Amino acid sequence: MASQGTKRSYEQMETDGERQNATEIRASVGKMIGGIGRFYIQMCTELKLSDYEGRLIQNSLTIERMVLSAFDERRNKYLEEHPSAGKDPKKTGGPIYRRVNGKWMRELILYDKEEIRRIWRQANNGDDATAGLTHMMIWHSNLNDATYQRTRALVRTGMDPRMCSLMQGSTLPRRSGAAGAAVKGVGTMVMELVRMIKRGINDRNFWRGENGRKTRIAYERMCNILKGKFQTAAQKAMMDQVRESRNPGNAEFEDLTFLARSALILRGSVAHKSCLPACVYGPAVASGYDFEREGYSLVGIDPFRLLQNSQVYSLIRPNENPAHKSQLVWMACHSAAFEDLRVLSFIKGTKVLPRGKLSTRGVQIASNENMETMESSTLELRSRYWAIRTRSGGNTNQQRASAGQISIQPTFSVQRNLPFDRTTIMAAFNGNTEGRTSDMRTEIIRMMESARPEDVSFQGRGVFELSDEKAASPIVPSFDMSNEGSYFFGDNAEEYDN
């Protein structure tokens, strides 16, 4: 783990906690998980779902989305002020799938948001429990990260689609708070800032007046979040320049895209947490497990152990491969979309394939898809080993990566060399080191050039047997250095459309 220093740990961010010791953190995270579980059980009762239907990941996603929508204050306010045809701002819903006479049927349900809020609060001892809501947002974000390569979004903001390893959390809503900021990748933060800068260039009043003052505060806050992700002084200094700019424009845009590229080699610290679907927490609570009393951590053995003992089902389209669908969801559960496939294969105990080789589309089923041909199958979400999630980018030494994705962002704290394609990355730096950030740029390029592919990161860190909950005997895996390590390699994943 990167030293926490003055930073709060993510469990504290996750639970809005002030400084807590490890036991208190485990208890408050457990409380959050228990609340999600209780809410899910109650919703299944309301909807009269069978046990099997309640364990269907598509039903879980609909129920999670309903509660997130019920608590989305800004959108609710907007919907009330701008009524649109056929949208009731006070209601929320989605597809629920039921097994009827041996076939899967889709039923569109509609609930009062007020009623959903009441059920959620009741499951969370009367609190709004925003930490639990954020947790579900991060699960949705991790699922998107594993399912889609955001080529269009990258290109629109002047970045290269091969930089997708920097895009963790790119679909997280803005209201996801400190826990959300911690899991956002460098590219995601750059993209958010670039969008602001572009608006400022096109709209003279963007930075002016009372609204402009708020915009400015948001801009500086985002700059500080991004600065905190960088691990070298030169990158941090460049972020200070971007933040202090009187009138952010093209120079800042250039600096930010430069920094994003540099992060492929001088990786930023991005938190990883295993956020599971509500249909995993519900049955665990129903079986009598007391998360608050037992304590829970999002970055240790607990999620692995929970998945070892969970039964989750998914709808499967006619030509999809259930094992591939399982891999997709497994990666999402562990926030591992940008991790090295060699490491993932070792931990999972079966070969993890790149996205383009998977015969599976996303987990969600569109409303126009034919239910007649839908089957369902068990998702295999178990693992051979477990490993500690990392909050750091690993040290800054790398190795060759593949054509589709030119770097990785480690999820697990496991000893290995970190793949990246130096030639491709360095070719993108057209040696432009003039301007006010020239000395920093020169320094950053120097550090990137001296990074050695064969150097090892996370020295001495290994994986653990599932029986080793105290992480007492690390097993340090050895990897084939020459092997392909990137998930979005030469990829044809669908595009994420909101």
Rank of each mutant, 00 (worst) to 15 (best):
Q4G: 00
R8T: 00
S9P: 15
E11P: 01
Q12R: 09
T15P: 00
D16W: 14
Q20M: 05
T23K: 00
I33M: 14
G34F: 01
I41Y: 15
M43A: 13
K48V: 12
L56W: 11
Q58A: 00
Q58D: 02
T62M: 06
S69I: 04
A70T: 15
F71A: 07
F71K: 14
R75H: 06
K77F: 10
E81D: 14
A85E: 11
G86P: 06
D88N: 11
K91P: 01
G93A: 09
G94T: 05
R99P: 06
W104M: 13
R106Y: 03
L108V: 10
L110K: 08
D112S: 05
D112Y: 12
E115K: 09
R117Y: 14
R118P: 05
R118Y: 08
Q122M: 14
A123D: 11
D128I: 13
A129P: 02
A131Q: 15
L133F: 06
L133P: 05
L133W: 01
T134Y: 00
T134F: 00
H135L: 05
M137R: 05
I138P: 00
I138D: 06
N142G: 15
D145E: 11
D145M: 08
A146G: 12
Y148A: 01
A153G: 09
L154R: 04
V155Q: 07
T157A: 15
T157C: 15
L172N: 04
P173M: 04
A178E: 07
A181F: 06
A182K: 03
A182Y: 01
A182P: 04
G185C: 05
V186G: 01
V186N: 11
T188N: 04
T188Q: 12
V190M: 13
M191K: 10
L193N: 04
L193T: 07
K198Q: 12
R199V: 12
R199F: 13
R199H: 10
I201F: 11
D203V: 06
R204S: 01
N205D: 10
F206A: 10
G209V: 07
G209F: 13
N211E: 02
N211F: 14
R213H: 04
E220W: 12
R221G: 11
C223D: 06
K227S: 14
Q231F: 00
A233C: 05
A233G: 10
A233E: 03
Q235N: 03
K236Y: 04
K236A: 02
K236G: 05
M238V: 11
Q241Y: 06
V242N: 05
E244F: 01
S245E: 02
N247F: 01
G249S: 03
E252V: 06
A260K: 01
A260W: 02
S262P: 10
R267S: 07
G268S: 14
S269F: 05
S269L: 11
C275P: 08
Y281S: 03
Y281L: 12
V285P: 00
A286F: 05
Y289W: 03
R293C: 12
E294D: 15
V299G: 09
I301W: 05
F304P: 03
L306F: 12
Q311M: 00
L315H: 01
L315Y: 00
P318G: 12
A323D: 02
Q327T: 05
V329M: 12
H334T: 14
H334E: 00
A337S: 13
F338G: 01
E339I: 03
E339P: 01
D340E: 12
L341H: 00
S345T: 15
F346R: 02
T350S: 12
K351D: 06
K351V: 10
V352Y: 09
P354S: 11
R355W: 05
G356C: 14
K357E: 05
L358R: 03
R361G: 12
G362V: 09
N368V: 15
E369Y: 05
E369H: 05
M371N: 15
E372K: 13
T373L: 14
S376L: 07
S377W: 02
E380T: 07
L381G: 00
S383L: 00
S383E: 03
Y385M: 10
W386V: 06
A387G: 15
R389Y: 02
S392K: 03
G394T: 10
N397Y: 03
S402Y: 12
S402P: 02
G404R: 04
G404N: 14
T411F: 08
S413L: 11
P419R: 01
F429H: 07
N430R: 08
R436E: 06
R436T: 09
R441C: 04
R446Y: 09
M447G: 08
M447S: 08
M447C: 15
P453Q: 13
E454P: 09
G460C: 05
V463L: 10
E469W: 11
K470R: 13
A471Q: 02
A472P: 02
A472R: 02
A472G: 15
I475R: 07
S478Y: 15
D480E: 14
S486G: 03
F489A: 02
D491G: 10
N498F: 07
